[in-house]
Computed example of a mutant assay.
Amino acid sequence: MEYIGPKAYDNQEFFNQYMRRRHRDESPNTLIEKPVILELLGDVSDKAILDLGCGDGSLGIELINHGIKSYHGVEGSKNMYLKALENLISPEAKMELTTMEDYSYPQENFDIVVSQLAIHYIEDFNKLAHNIFQTLKLNGKLVFSVQHPLLTSSFESMTSSGRRYNWIVDDYFHSGKRTEPWIGEQVVKFHRTIENYFLTLQNAGFVINSLREPMPDKQYFSDNEEYLRRMRIPLFLLFSCSKS
């Protein structure tokens, strides 16, 4: 069975395994991606923030602790939504159970839109980029991360079990649907080249301020072999854009 968008997380066994993986000490999300997304977000104090595909609200907790004005989390998985409700007990936080595609984007309402590793589930990135642009206030900021296109180009490497030390890059310039064998299920993602992400953001009206491919920082790794393995290939691609 193929799972599209956030639906895989409503498979209870998949959800439980994912949460264990996501919050383990050596998670690359925590060690590699998170420090850079926080750096790109910068000073969030007194900002109204929209978090698309907010998951269990982990980023929301961090943002609230940094003094934001308001937090609106959008999540399409009921399991994730319920977990976020448990985690985000704060007057600044509001949650909505809906997908990025179905969310009603209010005009010029947010200072910052953020999304962590969720946009690669979206088929129509062009429409999403335009929706985000119009929901941002003037001089507002979009910061997001996706699975790196070198990985989403082909999931052939995922067919073997165990730790990978070699990765297959194939069909890179053919954008579109990919099906990843992940945590025992078939999960649909959408591949785009770096150039495609860049041009789509430009066409929506954004100024691209930063493009990052986070490199592992040795100080965060207790296992030197794992650090060296993570130096082999970029896992994440991040953008910081502004509406001017």
Rank of each mutant, 00 (worst) to 15 (best):
P6M: 04
K7L: 06
Q12C: 07
E13S: 13
E13R: 10
F14D: 11
F15V: 04
F15H: 14
N16K: 12
N16S: 13
R21N: 05
I32S: 03
K34L: 13
L40D: 01
G42I: 10
G42K: 06
V44C: 08
V44H: 00
D46C: 07
L50Q: 00
D51C: 05
G53L: 01
C54R: 03
C54G: 11
E62G: 00
I64C: 09
N65W: 02
N65Q: 15
K78G: 00
E86F: 10
L88M: 07
E92I: 12
M95G: 12
T98I: 14
E101N: 04
S104C: 12
P106L: 12
Q116G: 09
L117V: 15
I122C: 10
K127M: 10
A129P: 00
N131D: 15
N131L: 09
I132C: 05
I132R: 00
T135L: 04
N139F: 09
G140M: 12
K141I: 15
S145D: 08
V146D: 02
L150M: 15
S154Q: 10
F155C: 13
S160I: 12
R163P: 05
R164G: 14
V169D: 04
E180F: 03
G184R: 09
I194D: 00
N196G: 07
N203R: 07
G205D: 02
N209S: 06
L211G: 00
E213H: 05
Q219L: 02
Y220Q: 06
F221H: 03
S222F: 02
F236W: 03
F236M: 05
S244G: 09
